[in-house]
Simulated scan of single mutants.
Amino acid sequence: MIGAPVHIINACKQYGAFSAVTDVSLEVAAGEFVSILGPSGSGKTSLLTMIAGFELPSAGQIVIGGRDVTRLAPNHRNIGMVFQRYALFPHMTIAENVAFPLKMRKVARAERDRRVAETLDLVQLATLASRYPHQLSGGQQQRVALARAIVFEPPVLLMDEPLGALDKKLREALQLEIKQLQKRLGATVIYVTHDQEEALTMSDRVAVMAGGQIVQAGSPSALYGRPQTPFVADFIGRMSFAEAIYLGICDGAHVVRLGESVVLQAADVGEPLSPGARLRIAMRPERLVLAEHGKGGRNSIPGTLEASVFAGAFDLHLVRAETDGNPLLQVQMPAETGRGAFAAGMRVDVVADPQNLHVFELAGA
């Protein structure tokens, strides 16, 4: 299987007065795994259905493998599709389900049987070829749907929330299987999901959508470590926020003030800022440290520990900050670290490394 590049050029989709997708452009390289990530209503499924050909764009182009397919019917695009609901034929065996795309393409019986056997072996279902969908578990049915989508060796594979109906443990196992399979096949994959962990785990790149637009696209590490907007910062992983005022630069560091007396340094603020600008400070819980009040040193935010939650590998401490708005800060620390040293009701310091503060200017400030 040889993957094909996909170019989405200024795609728009209108439903009456409602704009589901607005001027979206995205390039997906051959053999790349790209996830389109966003909350419900962000436009991600509308974008996928335009790539598949189930919906025509109101404006813009869809180019696959150098060919403009914007107005082509789905069956002329040679795309594999995997849906959340499997869409298997209940009256057909597993082998017959997987063979169906080859039969529609009039592939000779001997070749069809060979490719079905190879594909079922690839998804670890060779021994279940004669069973029917209702005799399989949800995870096995999803493997059948995947096998049916790749058996005719499409250059592009579209996946729409394919693991959404599965339990967490099975979903995580299939995430790794799908990624490994994609690498072996060399297929181009465009994967729609609302699950942030799923997108970060599986993707070469992630395009985050909100309000019908791509607000940021990049590698999982770039989106997690260098979010460009408060929305992306909040949507990708856990994040705590606090309001601040920009004071300027001192000793090469950007200085911000939270409330009347809490002053923090930030290594990078992105866009140039003017003194007095109103800011939103974002902090990853796992990059904060809890200390006894008065012992946090520089870059500390005082507050009161409201609760500590055991979450398996880590403890999540909830601290009510003593700054404007009294935001609730989350501090994630390894399990057993400091356990017993902190109790609800204690005054504490939340220590923030300047390198791990994300600074955003408030719109209209």
Rank of each mutant, 00 (worst) to 15 (best):
R71M: 13
R114S: 12
A117D: 14
A87H: 09
Y86I: 02
Q61V: 08
Q61Y: 01
V107S: 10
V123K: 12
K103M: 08
V123A: 12
E111A: 15
A95V: 12
Y86C: 02
R112H: 03
N75P: 02
G80W: 12
L88P: 04
P74S: 07
I94W: 05
Q124V: 08
E118L: 15
A99G: 05
V116R: 11
I62Y: 02
I94F: 00
I62P: 02
S58N: 07
A59M: 03
I64Y: 06
A59Y: 05
E111C: 07
V63E: 13
M92L: 15
V107Q: 11
L120S: 07
L120Q: 09
L88A: 04
R112I: 08
V98L: 06
R67V: 15
R67L: 03
T119G: 03
E111N: 09
R67A: 13
F54T: 00
P74K: 05
P57Q: 06
F54Q: 00
E96Q: 15
G53D: 02
L88C: 01
E111F: 09
H91F: 11
E55Q: 08
G66I: 01
T70G: 12
A59R: 11
H76E: 15
F83H: 00
G60D: 07
F54P: 04
L102H: 10
G60C: 09
I64N: 03
R77F: 11
P74F: 02
D121G: 14
A117T: 10
A59S: 15
T119E: 06
P90W: 07
G80D: 09
A87V: 14
D113C: 06
N75V: 08
D113E: 15
Q84C: 01
A87N: 05
E55F: 01
M81V: 14
E118S: 11
E55L: 13
A126Q: 15
A126D: 03
G65E: 07
P101F: 14
V98W: 04
R105F: 00
Q84H: 04
L120F: 06
P101Q: 12
D68L: 10
A73V: 08
H91E: 08
A99L: 13
L56H: 11
I62W: 08
F100L: 14
V116G: 05
L56G: 03
F83N: 02
M81H: 10
Y86F: 14
T93G: 00
L102C: 11
E118I: 03
K103S: 00
E118M: 12
F83Y: 12
R77M: 11
V116L: 13
N97P: 05
